[in-house]
């Protein structure tokens, strides 16, 4: 059963998150200049990757939905977008915290942070349109289109922001991290991605359940009418 597998997945994700916390706070050394705030780095980077994974998953599923009309693809797209937005929000909160400590200001023109903000805005809009539009075919298509437009926009935003701000001297560099930090980063990455996968799968399951409720509801209406069908055959002349 899917639910069993998913439970194990959830257990695994919890353990991974716990060990990641252990690795980040217990194993990796406290960075000299940044102090404890540097710990943000491990989860910040992996959450950013998870967020983009969610957005790209959403875009891929949306293209498939538009081409094939498969409702399951729409459910996957929605899950990718919603979980992606969740991780993206964390990135946008942890980013300024980092910036405050590292550069003494909450917001900088750091290119990757600006790119993430644009992506977040587009997918926040996606989620809002979903909830305003309700469960209709128009909404599904609108959102699929938004996801495609949004993801197509990402390389352009990246390029423009890099060119505009790329020569900025205060770009975050990952070079020069110690081996312990690298181990901690790997564990954090694994933890965030197992959490991400669990959440996406859970959201997909909820979505599939919603689809099933809708189908059963229609079937119930249709069945009720079937009983009447037998009584009215005499008037159906043209077979």
């Amino acid at each position: 059963m899917m639910s069993d597998k998913l439970s194990w997945m959830a257990v695994f994700a919890s353990l991974a998150v716990l060990s990641a916390l252990g690795a980040v706070f217990g194993y990796a050394p406290v960075e000299a200049s940044m102090g404890i705030v540097q710990k943000i780095f491990y989860f910040h980077v992996s959450s950013a990757l998870a967020a983009y994974t969610g957005f790209f998953l959403c875009c891929g599923a949306s293209i498939y939905y538009l081409l094939k009309g498969d409702r399951r693809a729409d459910v996957v797209a929605r899950a990718g977008a919603e979980v992606g937005v969740l991780f993206c929000t964390f990135v946008l909160i942890s980013g300024p915290l980092w910036a405050r400590k590292a550069w003494g200001t909450w917001w900088t023109g750091e290119p990757r942070l600006m790119l993430t903000m644009v992506a977040a805005l587009i997918f926040y809009a996606y989620v809002v349109v979903r909830s305003i539009g309700g469960r209709t075919e128009i909404t599904r298509r609108i959102c699929a289109a938004l996801a495609i437009l949004g993801v197509a926009d990402i390389p352009l935003v990246h390029f423009a922001v890099q060119k505009w701000r790329g020569n900025h001297p205060r770009v975050l560099r990952n070079g020069g991290i110690s081996d312990e930090m690298e181990v901690a980063l790997t564990v954090a990455m694994l933890a965030v991605f197992s959490l991400f996968t669990t959440l996406v799968l859970l959201r997909i399951r909820v979505g599939m359940a919603e689809e099933k409720v809708e189908r059963l509801h229609r079937l119930a209406t249709a069945r009720g009418n079937d009983i009447e069908d037998r009584r009215r055959s005499p008037l159906l002349e043209n077979p």
């Binding site: 349109v129 305003i132 938004l146």
Partner: peptide, 18 residues
């Protein structure tokens, strides 16, 4: 769409950042 007047700019502006 309902609330079209708000949603169009909310989507258009981020897309047009480049």
């Amino acid at each position: 769409m309902r609330l079209r007047e708000v949603i169009v700019p909310v989507v258009l502006f981020p897309l047009c950042v480049p």
